[in-house]
Design a protein around this nucleic acid. Structure first.
Length: 548
RNA sequence: GGCCCGUUGGUGAAAUGGUUAACACGUUGCCCUCUCAAGGCAAUAUUUAUGGGUUCGAACCCCAUACGGGUCACCA
């Protein structure tokens, strides 16, 4: 029995050949140097931090080289799929402004000439290639049961040998085609395995764009190509899809390095060009025990990109942060090119560290803080509104009715060369500005102030000095006058030199006003705050305070 | 355990054989100041995991050791 006859027995229903597929998915007509790259997530419902980084870089690479960035869904494993899992992924990508040129758009739609872009819809393609491999003697049906494989593994562990289906352990490798056909006809269950031509003692070289030259043993494992559910294993699907979709560069995490020999071998056997590989370092964290480990979907909430959305960290800040991880010189570049943005930066693999990095939330928040500080007050307003709409509805309602007022709050100390930097994310804003809203400022606000202050001097101030329309200079001069009339020093220095002559200094009065009017010990510029609140509201708060 | 990769301060890291090991975040101190934030100015690795070697000269090249990470599925 020939290999071809066996192949026909196993896959009787394929009606295309591998040559047909070469014609259906022709080489792309792109300018020289254009990169065809992809993001290939499983439909898990959300994007992981570890895949956001390559997604961002791939998008950039495609844009910079006038190439193509596409999204392909890898759903060959049911366990990884979630109902409507694609929607969540596309949503996260949209949030990060990662546009796809081609591929999946949502649960139902896709665009592009190289589809389908969902692996489960490409079953016949994989079958055709598996059939081809059988026909040329590079694949075979394997009838080993799971128990049998487990037994083999245990024996290998016991003998301290390499684990896997290879050499003498590859029981089904040397069956005759007649034996195979007989078992199939008898209804025995089987999967399709690669008949690996590799030699573990020979080396292959991977020229990785990030890690440089890596020498590894050839693959000699007869890995599974097609599972018992009829769908391909990742390795097989990766090679076929990335060839047929004419991918030129594959960027993925370093956890894939060790299986690259398998991929290179498959590309070679199938006569495909091997794409460039770039294995980026993994993003890790230090866990409770002080151990470094890769960010995990299950254990670490910060692994999901939606976590940053909930905190209200601007998308742009996350991008900047990830780029500082990706290219160490990015921060400096941005510092030296203040008029430029993330989009102007040319990403460079040479500047990409091959070691994994620890995720640094402080750094992210700092970048975010700087970014928010450079926004216009009206933008802070609209972005905070946008955030609150999803995550704090009560605040959202308050914001919608106080557009002008809230914008004015965000404008405090913003119109200066070095704007105030105190919002590191949108979620923080309510906590830092609540006392500016009369709607939120009730008697309850004072519950944390335990010592009752004498506020006669502040009544005096409000009734006899304060005016909403004073300039800052006049405002401050009045305060000094108030200080003088009440035996407080007009200058802090003067007080420090002759403190025994005074009850305090002008700063003490400011502090008292601040405390009574806002309940806070620290606030932005007091002049701005009083002016925004207005005399009437200030009086209301004084009266409120008197009653406690 | 096999195979890969990595190791520069609390974090991200620069420096790819040549003066005092950049810069940013963090931390600490001082200044400014009505409080904060910001800003300004300092301090923060007696030395690049450790040990050996090559060299006039090593963070950088070589070897060994230690530690960390990844991977070894009919997961991706």
């Amino acid at each position: 029995m020939t290999n071809q006859e066996l192949a026909d027995l196993i896959f009787p229903n394929t009606n295309k050949t591998i040559d047909d597929y070469e014609k259906i998915y022709p080489k792309r007509n792109l300018t020289a140097g254009a990169k065809v790259v992809r993001m290939a997530p499983s439909p898990t419902g959300f994007v992981h931090m570890g895949s956001l980084l390559p997604a961002l870089l791939n998008r950039k690479l495609a844009t910079d080289t006038k190439g193509i960035f596409y999204v392909r869904i890898e759903d060959t494993d049911g366990k990884r799929s979630v109902l409507n899992g694609i929607t969540g992924i596309i949503k996260d990508l949209n949030d990060f402004d990662i546009k796809t040129d081609e591929g999946i758009l949502n649960e139902e739609q896709e665009i592009g000439q190289y589809g389908p872009y969902i692996q489960s819809k490409r079953k016949e393609i994989y079958e055709t290639y598996a059939k081809y491999l059988i026909s040329i003697g590079y694949a075979y049906p394997c009838f080993c049961t799971e128990e049998k494989i487990t037994t083999i593994r245990k024996q290998q562990e016991k003998n301290k040998e390499r684990i896997g289906y290879y050499g003498k352990y590859a029981k089904c490798r040397d069956l005759t085609n007649e034996q195979r056909a007989k078992k199939i006809i008898n209804g025995e269950k089987y999967i399709i395995r690669l008949k690996s031509p590799g030699d573990f003692n020979k080396k292959i070289i991977l020229n990785d764009l990030v890690c440089g030259k890596i020498e590894m043993p050839e693959n000699d494992l007869d890995i599974v190509l097609i599972k018992s559910d009829g769908l391909p294993i990742y390795h097989f699907a990766h090679v076929i899809d990335d060839h047929l979709m004419r991918t030129t560069l594959v960027m993925r995490g370093q956890e894939w390095i060790s299986s690259t020999p398998i991929h290179m071998q498959l590309f070679k056997i199938l006569g495909f060009n091997i794409p460039q590989y770039a294995h980026n370092g993994l993003i890790a964290k230090i866990d409770e025990n002080g151990c470094k480990r890769k960010l995990s979907k299950r254990k670490d909430p910060e692994a999901a990109v939606s976590y940053y959305k909930e905190l209200g960290i601007p998308v742009y800040a996350v991008k900047l942060y990830l780029m500082t991880i990706a290219n160490s010189n990015f921060e400096m570049w941005l510092d030296n090119n203040k008029d430029k943005t993330y989009d102007d930066y040319k990403f460079d693999f040479k500047k990409m560290s091959s070691s994994g990095s620890i995720f640094d939330l402080d750094k992210l928040l700092n970048i975010s803080k700087n970014y928010i500080s450079r926004l216009k007050a009206s933008d802070v307003y609209s972005k905070t509104l946008n955030w609150a709409k999803q995550f704090d509805f009560e605040f959202y309602q308050l914001l919608t009715t106080t557009k002008e007022y809230s914008t004015a709050i965000y404008n405090i100390e913003r119109q200066q060369k070095k704007p105030r930097k105190d919002f590191s994310c949108y979620k923080e804003i309510k906590n830092q500005t609540w006392y500016m809203y009369k709607e939120l400022f009730t008697k309850k606000a004072y519950q944390n102030i335990n010592t009752k202050q004498n506020i006669d001097i502040i009544y005096d101030y409000i009734n006899n000095y304060y005016n909403d329309f004073d300039t800052k200079e006049i405002w401050y001069n009045k305060l000094k006058k108030l200080a003088k009339n009440n035996n407080y020093a007009e200058e802090v220095k003067e007080y420090k030199e002759n403190y025994e002559q005074y009850k305090g200094h002008v700063g003490d009065i400011c502090e008292l006003i601040r405390l009574i009017i806002t309940t806070q010990a620290k606030t932005p510029d007091l002049y701005e705050i009083l002016k925004l609140l207005g005399k009437e509201e200030i009086k209301r708060r004084l009266d409120l305070y008197s009653t406690i």
